[in-house]
Amino acid sequence: MNTTPSATWLPGGTVYGTLLNFQREFALWAPQMNEPPYKSPPKAPVLYVKTANTFTACSQSIALPAGASVEVAASLGLVMGAGGVTGIVLFNDVAIAHESYYRPPVKTRCVDGFLGLGPECVPLDQLGGLNALRELEIELHRNGVHKQTTRLAEWVRDAATLLADVCEFMSLRPGDVLMTGTDCLPEGRRELVHAGDTVEITAPGFQT
């Protein structure tokens, strides 16, 4: 699978992803949230880590494991500086398709190369601040065909709320990145890709 164009930006710290932060997917999972093992909806953000081995520069190929169903999704990342969020990056969050969030998703999400990096970190003030991010829509194309529009107005927690809730139980250091989640398609899954596919992610104010 390929991404495009050339990248110059790399994360300077740990990249954290967020699960269930879009209204559609949260609603689809709601009936199961009161069942074992948790028996109630999550009260804090549900996070996972994208380890450094997953980082793939824009325009570089991502090797897909043989026989695995692999899905892609667009996400927006908050890049931390010394005084808070300093910039925003687009990501292609790649994962092996799986049915459960009950186990830490390391095996499905931390495969080598499974985080496509946007080519730039856009300064937050250039985008109008955290509250303005809700106005953004991110488009995902596969092989030049539009497959999904992610509307950030449909976040469960907007960027400022998510950041504040995460910082209640852990510290984010300069260089760390907090991804704000990925949305599912109407049927509950994410876009599947195959060897040879090209994925492009676009949003106003960002390079593809």
Rank of each mutant, 00 (worst) to 15 (best):
T3A: 12
V199N: 00
V85E: 02
V49N: 06
A195S: 14
R142V: 15
V70P: 01
T180M: 06
K147W: 06
T56Y: 05
A159P: 03
P5W: 05
Y38Q: 08
L152R: 01
E137Y: 02
E154P: 00
G84K: 09
T86C: 12
Q23M: 07
H98S: 15
T180A: 08
P204Q: 14
T149S: 11
P123Q: 14
R190F: 09
D125L: 09
S171C: 13
A97C: 05
T51M: 11
V85R: 01
I96D: 03
A68E: 15
E168I: 10
F26M: 15
C184F: 03
L136C: 11
T3G: 07
A57G: 08
C121S: 10
P41Q: 08
A57P: 04
P186N: 12
T149W: 00
W29Q: 15
E137P: 04
P11D: 12
L133E: 04
R109H: 07
V15S: 00
D183Q: 14
A68K: 15
L178K: 00
V193N: 01
R103P: 01
P174A: 07
Y16H: 08
A159K: 01
G196I: 07
Q126F: 10
P36F: 11
P119R: 14
L185F: 03
A160M: 08
A7I: 07
I62F: 09
V111N: 01
V89H: 03
N53W: 06
L78G: 02
C110Y: 01
T86I: 13
R134N: 15
V72F: 05
P36R: 12
F91V: 09
V89C: 04
K50A: 13
R142P: 00
L185V: 06
A153E: 08
L152N: 03
H146P: 11
A203I: 02
L178F: 02
A7C: 07
T4I: 06
M33T: 09
Y102C: 09
R151S: 12
R103K: 13
G13E: 04
L76F: 05
G113R: 03
E154V: 02
C167R: 14
F169D: 10
I138G: 01
G144M: 11
G87Q: 06
G77Y: 00
F169R: 13
E99N: 11
H194G: 09
G12C: 15
S59V: 13
D125N: 09
S59M: 10
R103T: 09
L78R: 01
L64E: 05
A73D: 15
P65Q: 10
Q23D: 13
I96C: 05
V89D: 02
P65S: 08
L152V: 07
G81L: 06
R157F: 11
V94Q: 05
K43L: 07
H194W: 02
L90P: 03
L90D: 03
D93C: 07
I201K: 00
P123N: 15
E191N: 06
K107S: 12
I201D: 01
D93M: 04
M179L: 12
A164L: 08
E99Q: 09
P41G: 10
L117R: 01
V72T: 15
L162V: 02
L172V: 11
E187G: 11
F114R: 01
S61K: 14
G181C: 07
S40H: 06
G87P: 00
P123C: 12
T182C: 11
Y38F: 09
G205P: 04
V94C: 08
Q60K: 10
A74E: 03
E120Y: 06
P41L: 08
E135M: 08
P123E: 14
T51I: 10
